[in-house]
């Protein structure tokens, strides 16, 4: 039996997925802008971010109304609580895309430090993380959400590698400090997006099963990596 409430919940999910689509586009524009040295793409990020902010408010508004009017329980309650949290993470991912665009704009204004190798790999990992996170939410797929948690370690590893490489480069080439810093900041922004995707994956698992795996997930992932 489908309830009227199910229709409202479906609309809420669609709202959130629409917002996630904007976030994906913002990240893509920012990263492509860097790789292709394209300022027009960077400008687009700011336009998309405005829409993300509007969606942020709209999703919260829908959640508050559903909580007040439907007084949801069990899985319904978990879905709405998770949506409120996912909404915040998506909005912050949008902010990070803007930060990437800013740092990338500065980077492409000068001579490149070196050919980009690890950053494009990091873009790809983060892009897949974000995509899988949203897919796990849409398909209520806890297994896929757990995959995202594992992928975050790859992203963290790439960030650390970029930090090391850039540091070693600027130790010898002091004149490249500013450009090196831009790359480090971009790697840091991407890593933060990965962290937000991780938070979302944890919220998806909570919404599906009621299981709260925050903080313990790290330990579990490390354990799995060791075995």
């Amino acid at each position: 039996m489908e309830r009227h409430f199910d229709v409202s919940l479906r609309e809420l999910k669609e709202q959130l997925v629409g917002m996630a689509g904007l976030v994906e586009r913002a990240i893509e524009c920012a990263t492509l802008g860097l790789v292709q040295r394209d300022r027009a793409l960077m400008t687009q990020v700011h336009e998309i971010e405005k829409k993300i902010n509007e969606a942020h408010i709209a999703v919260d508004d829908s959640c508050v109304k559903l909580l007040a009017l439907q007084q949801p329980l069990a899985a319904d309650l978990r879905l709405i609580v998770a949506t409120i949290k996912i909404n915040t993470d998506l909005e912050r991912m949008g902010d990070q895309a803007v930060n990437i665009a800013g740092n990338a704009t500065r980077y492409i204004s000068a001579e490149p430090l070196k050919p980009l190798v690890d950053l494009p790999r990091m873009f790809e990992e983060v892009r897949v993380m974000v995509r899988e996170t949203i897919d796990s939410f849409v398909r209520t797929d806890a297994q896929l959400a757990r995959e995202v948690l594992r992928r975050d370690d790859l992203v963290d590893g790439l960030k650390n590698k970029i930090f090391r490489d850039v540091l070693e480069h600027v130790k010898i080439n002091a004149g490249d400090i500013e450009q090196g810093l831009n790359l480090i900041l971009i790697a840091r922004n991407l890593e933060r997006i990965g962290d937000h995707a991780t938070n979302i994956a944890e919220d998806v698992i909570f919404a599906i099963s009621g299981e709260d795996i925050r903080h313990s997930a790290r330990i579990e992932t490390i354990k799995q990596a060791l075995t």
């Binding site: 309830r3 069990a74 899985a75 319904d76 309650l77 978990r78 099963s209 009621g210 299981e211």
Partner: peptide
């Protein structure tokens, strides 16, 4: 019980899905 019931019948009842 009201946030994460274990039995699917409890879940269906408290979320008004019975029927």
């Amino acid at each position: 019980i009201f946030t994460a019931p274990k039995d699917s019948r409890t879940e269906r009842y408290i979320t008004g899905r019975f029927g």
